[in-house]
Nucleic acid binder design. Structure first.
Lengths: 201, 201
DNA sequence: GTCTATATCGGGATAGAC
DNA sequence: GTCTATCCCGATATAGAC
C-alpha cells in the first residue's frame, strides 16, 4: 500500500503484528519479524527494548481498535435483535481482516494472560449490562428471555471456530480454499439466523 | 491411582500428555516433561527418540480414543435429534476430562498440522454422511432441513469456547472458579436446547 | 538510525559411566 | 534402564562501528 513512505517504527509494528498473530508470543521469532519488516534484529531492540515490550505495543494496538466498537454497540439504543445482528457482523468483519487473531489470543492466554485480561477490565467491556434490556424486551413480549453469558459466548464461539480450526473443518468437509471462502460467507446469515431463532418467541 | 505400579514408559506418556496439552508442541519443554514424570531428560530420548516422536505417541493416544466414539455415534441408528444430543454430551465429557485439549489442538494446527489432519482422513470421520438422514427426516416432517457443516461446527464451537477462552469469559462475566463450574454445567442443556430449537419445526 | 559482530542463555539431543 | 555431563544449535539481547 505505502511501500516506502512508512516510518520504520510502523514497519516494525506491522511486521510484528503479522508474525505474532501467526505464531503467538512464544513461537514468534525476532529474526522473522526483522525479515518481514525488511530490517535487522538489532533495530528491533533499538525501537522496542525487548520482545515483550514489542508484543505489548502490538497488542495494545489491536485491542484499542477492537473493544471500543463492541462496547459502543452494546451501549447503543438499538433493540436486542439488532444489537446481536450487528455484533455478529462486526465480529466477523474483524476476523476476516485478522484471520489469525483468535489463535493469537489463545496463545496469549496460555503464555502471558495478565496484561491481556487487564484490557477487558480497563476498557470496561461488560455484556452483562444487556440483562436489563433483555428483561425489558422479554416482559414486553418481544423476545424470549435469555442470559447474555450464554448467548454472547455462543455467538463468539460460532464466529471464531471456522477461523481458528479452519484446517480441520476444511479437511473433514473436504473443501478447497475457494469452497471455504464461500462457506465463510454463508456463515454470517447462518449464525444470525441461528441466534435470532433462539431468542424469538 | 497407581503410584508405583506404573511402567516408566506410561509415566512418560502421562507426563508428556499433560505438558503437551498445557503448552502445545513447540512450547512444551522436555525438561518439564522429565520433571513431571520424575525422571531425567536423557531417559525421554531413550524411550522415544525425539520430541517429535514423543508428541506423535501422545497424540495417537488421544486421537484413537476420541474419534471412534464420535464416528460410532454418527453411524448409529439413532434419530438426528438424539445423535446431536449425544454428540454434545460426549464432546463436553471429553472436554471436562481434558480441559486443555482445544488449546493443544490449536497449537498443533499452527505448528505441525499434517500428522494431525491425516488422522481425520485415516479414521474416516465424516459428518457429511448425516446429510442423507437429515434429508430423509426433513422430508418426513420431523425436522427442519439443515447442513451438517454449519450445525456441527456450531455445536463444536459452543462446546469448546468456554474451555479455550475460560480466562476471558471468567473476567468479562466476573465469575470465580466455583461460579464457572456451575456455568459449565448449565451449558450442556443450554447448547442442546439451542441446537434442537434451531432444527425443530 | 542502521548495520555487523558477538555475548549469553536455554533447550534438544548425545556420550558414556554405572 | 537410568543417571551425569556435555555438545550444539538457535534465539534474545548487547556492543560498538559507521
Amino acid at each position: 500500500m505505502k511501500p516506502k513512505e512508512e516510518t520504520t517504527e510502523a514497519q516494525i509494528l506491522n511486521a510484528a503484528r503479522s508474525v505474532f498473530i501467526a505464531k503467538g508470543l512464544e513461537c514468534a521469532r525476532m529474526q522473522e519479524i526483522a525479515d518481514t519488516a525488511g530490517i535487522n534484529k538489532a533495530l528491533l531492540h533499538y525501537y522496542f527494548r525487548s520482545k515483550d515490550k514489542l508484543f505489548e505495543a502490538v497488542f495494545n494496538d489491536i485491542a484499542s481498535n477492537l473493544f471500543p466498537a463492541m462496547q459502543q454497540l452494546l451501549d447503543s439504543e438499538l433493540g436486542i435483535k439488532e444489537k446481536l445482528t450487528f455484533f455478529v457482523k462486526i465480529y466477523l468483519k474483524t476476523l476476516h481482516e485478522n484471520p489469525f487473531l483468535p489463535a493469537f489470543v489463545i496463545n496469549t492466554l496460555y503464555s502471558n494472560p495478565e496484561p491481556f485480561l487487564r484490557h477487558f477490565k480497563d476498557i470496561g467491556l461488560n455484556p452483562m449490562l444487556l440483562q436489563d434490556q433483555i428483561d425489558d424486551e422479554a416482559a414486553r413480549g418481544l423476545i424470549r428471555p435469555f442470559k447474555p453469558q450464554h448467548v454472547i459466548v455462543n455467538i463468539v464461539a460460532m464466529c471464531i471456530l471456522p477461523f481458528v480450526a479452519r484446517p480441520i473443518v476444511q479437511t473433514i468437509f473436504t473443501m478447497d480454499d475457494e469452497a471455504y471462502s464461500l462457506y465463510l460467507q454463508q456463515r454470517e446469515n447462518e449464525i444470525i439466523g441461528f441466534v435470532l431463532n433462539s431468542i424469538s418467541l
